[in-house]
Design a protein around this nucleic acid. Structure first.
Lengths: 325, 325
DNA sequence: TTGTACGCGTTATCAA
DNA sequence: TTGATAACGCGTACAA
């Protein structure tokens, strides 16, 4: 356009107090909002307390940020119909599901019909969602196999939640069958492949405190304590260790503990013991998040998304040893 | 409407594959998107690494979540004109600025004209923004006064970034004057009220590694080392301590270190020393975030927002002691 | 109770 | 290069 016209327009615009395009109208017209939704399972304030989520977000943010896309944090829809509102009402071009234990098929169905791309991290197979996979089952199998090599026979699993009800306590066949938490079940199955009858107790979430509670029950006087515990997260593992120490047991001499995740663990209780490094399965959080974001962006561009698969490594620390006697 | 009509409508809707209201159109028409933007200063992936941001987000998420509002994470606009795009393009009903060192007045001006409420946490006075205040200056003053009581004379400040350029190195009058980082300057001024000529070195951000780099320079052989260091964050303090230990100095016998924030600190280097608790200024992150979110929600409802002011407490740990001799 | 028309602010298209 | 017009999908107000 001519400089003349340009100036005239700018003048009128300024006079009218025009502040540039309105994002709402723009996104209506273009069908794009420049926003990727990230669905977290917990209350956001809980989610931020779990390094697993934060590290995964880290990877997602890295890729999304570079593409000029913002992240919308949404809590996983409750079973409640009305609870689905935030997910359905929020303007998003794509959605990434992080560790969703809750069954959110109905919500995903809505997103599908809207042609909103969905990427699912470590979820069960979801029709129409691009999977980002982690070898939860195989990795747990390897950890269990390691304990078997050490000579352990009595192994108990301290598990993540089985479903959104989040009841604490021992896992029985019925609860297992009705579980909606894919990651929890995969990790449990991996251990059962080595220890078919290993008992499991479920917690209400991944935290040191929950691990401590579960551990306190395991190491209570008068109960036959396991010689090894497979915790389904590092936070739980730290809690279990702490409960063991409080019960007067030594780790790893009296009881071995394995974790999962490979986060940077900090707990003062550990530091009062000679333990320096947790035996755990180290998973690649950041690359996982990056892959998820890349898949989401690819789908936005109409390209074929790339499913991705990641592998965890067993890191031998000093919380595992052969059983006594 | 009659049941008859209702059924007919539902039938047609299903037939046409209607999936409920489109969020984009709905938000255009209603002028609301149900989204609060949270502006962070760093790349999001860096921001997630800083517990300060995470804890503040924690508080925001708590309140926002309860109100059914989602959070949109946006990176602070670069000085670059084009860099403002994400902030201006994203559909948001209100904006919370977290620790913005960069001068974002232009962006805020746009938001103001759009009548988008702005809440600023620990920012300099911004026209039209509701302030959430922390006693950075007074708190730093108290920490410095404590060092003075102990008898320290040679105190150096290890500072957060002064501006978006983020150049490492000593702070001179010119750089101080041109600083855009309000929090950094307030904390520095607090110390200077007690030690008017205390030298300061600036880092590129709040991290253990940056603290280590700054500390390494302070404790280099042949340089007159300070007897006390005021670090402007706990992460920096940990780095400084670690550098001191590496330089063969004992903390607090040879050098005292004060932090800021009161986060849960974890660093294996510390645990190889007898240090158990950092002397630091503990600030109420979560309440601060909650207050910010409440202010944002209030403005959305057209109510008068409540500015808030928070106070930090000096927590005496074992990283401070009288100077030698 | 039901149907219809308009406007929210853009952007895309087409004609001049 | 410029100007006019339609359509995105919803909510609301008004008329039938």
């Amino acid at each position: 356009m001519s400089e003349d016209t340009r100036q005239r327009i700018l003048a009128v615009a300024a006079e009218l107090g025009y502040d540039g395009p309105d994002p709402r109208a723009r996104s209506l017209r273009r069908g794009r909002s420049g926003v990727i939704g990230v669905v977290l399972d917990d209350r956001l304030s809980d989610a931020f307390r779990d390094p697993v989520n934060v590290l995964t977000l880290d990877g997602i943010a890295e890729v999304a940020g570079a593409a000029g896309v913002s992240l919308l944090l949404v809590r996983s829809p409750l079973d409640d119909e009305r609870g689905m509102a935030p997910l359905v009402d929020a303007p998003m071009d794509a959605v990434i599901l992080i560790g969703c234990n809750v069954r959110i098929d109905p919500a995903v169905a809505v997103l599908r019909r809207r042609a909103i791309p969905v990427v699912a991290i470590e979820a069960d197979v979801i029709e129409g969602a691009v999977p980002i996979h982690l070898d939860n089952r195989d990795a747990s199998h390897r950890a269990a196999a390691y304990l078997r090599e050490l000579g352990h026979r009595a192994v108990t699993v301290v598990a993540l939640p089985l479903d959104s009800s989040r009841e604490r306590g021992p896992v029985d066949a019925a609860r297992e069958r009705s579980s909606t938490a894919f990651t929890t079940m995969e990790r449990l199955r991996g251990v059962r492949e080595v220890y078919p009858s290993a008992p499991a107790v479920v917690t209400t979430g991944s935290s040191v405190e929950e691990g401590r509670i579960a551990g306190a029950a395991l190491f209570a006087p008068g109960v036959a304590a396991p010689t090894a515990v497979v915790a389904q997260s590092d936070l739980l593992a730290v809690g279990v260790i702490s409960a063991a120490l409080e019960a007067g047991l030594r780790v790893p001499e009296d009881v071995s503990v394995v974790g999962f995740d490979g986060i940077h663990v900090d707990d003062s209780l550990l530091h009062r013991s000679p333990i320096r490094q947790l035996t755990t399965l180290v998973q690649p959080f950041v690359p996982k998040g990056e892959a998820a974001a890349r898949a989401a962006l690819a789908m936005l561009e109409g390209e074929a998304p790339e499913p991705a698969s990641f592998r965890s490594e067993l890191r031998i620390g000093d919380t595992t040893a052969p059983p006594r006697g």
